[in-house]
Nucleic acid binder design. Structure first.
Length: 201
DNA sequence: CGGAAGATTTCT
DNA sequence: GAAATCTTCCGA
């Protein structure tokens, strides 16, 4: 079994974040590093719908030093530090000045698994990439990766095989209790019954 | 310029 | 259940 390392096209990313979040399930997040290629299948995502969504960093509509890249055209990476110690990897979506993004919350390890174990300091396969901070650490994604073009960088997302066969479950997003009515939006998407989802929907 | 909070993880 | 840990953002 081999993975096709064909990066997704720009036109995929310029759709709205909910469409992209669903479309990313079953695709492959890959990072070519000095140690080798590290790659995992995307099994859990969350959409952040910009100025319509109180949970989004870009809700105010004003770019800041941190969120500037969200206001660019879709197809760039948005990586930020959370809780002073973990990085989260997002994909910028939609057109310029429509600041939406998709948070990648969990992967199923595919290749470079020994590198992941080194990066994560654990032997347990299940704990390598089943959470947003964990997968960033496993794939050596940090804030130096912010703003990269996913169509032309060592960091990219490759096509999955059969998008139409992916069974998608929608649920409420995680850890956004501050977001008032937006906390009930069904913007979290997981592959049904996949064991690497961060926690059961 | 100070203070509060955070799209998490890990340990007790 | 709570600590770890520090950048970011907003209000004064």
């Amino acid at each position: 079994m081999s993975v096709q390392f064909t990066p997704l096209k720009k036109s995929f990313y310029t759709q709205d974040a909910v469409t992209v979040a669903k479309g990313l399930l079953g695709t492959y997040l890959c990072h070519k590093t000095e140690k080798g290629v590290i790659c995992g299948k995307i099994v859990e995502t969350e959409a952040y719908m910009g100025t319509e969504d109180k949970a989004a960093h870009s809700y105010s509509g004003k770019p800041t030093d941190r969120t500037r890249v969200m206001f660019c055209e879709g197809g760039l990476s948005y990586v930020y530090l959370i809780y002073g110690m973990h990085c989260c990897f997002n994909v910028v979506c939609n057109k310029e000045n429509t600041p939406q993004a998709v948070l990648i919350r969990a992967l199923e390890p595919v290749s470079g698994i020994e590198i992941m174990r080194e990066n994560r300091k654990t032997e347990k396969l299940k704990l390598l990439t089943n959470g947003p901070g964990k997968l960033a650490q496993a794939l050596s994604i940090d804030r130096a990766c912010n703003g990269l073009d996913l169509a032309t960088s060592p960091l990219f997302i490759a096509e999955g095989k059969e998008p139409s066969l992916v069974e998608i479950v929608s649920s409420k997003r995680v850890n956004i209790d501050y977001a008032e009515e937006a906390k009930d939006f069904l913007y979290r998407f997981t592959i049904k019954e996949n064991p690497f989802v961060s926690k059961k929907p």
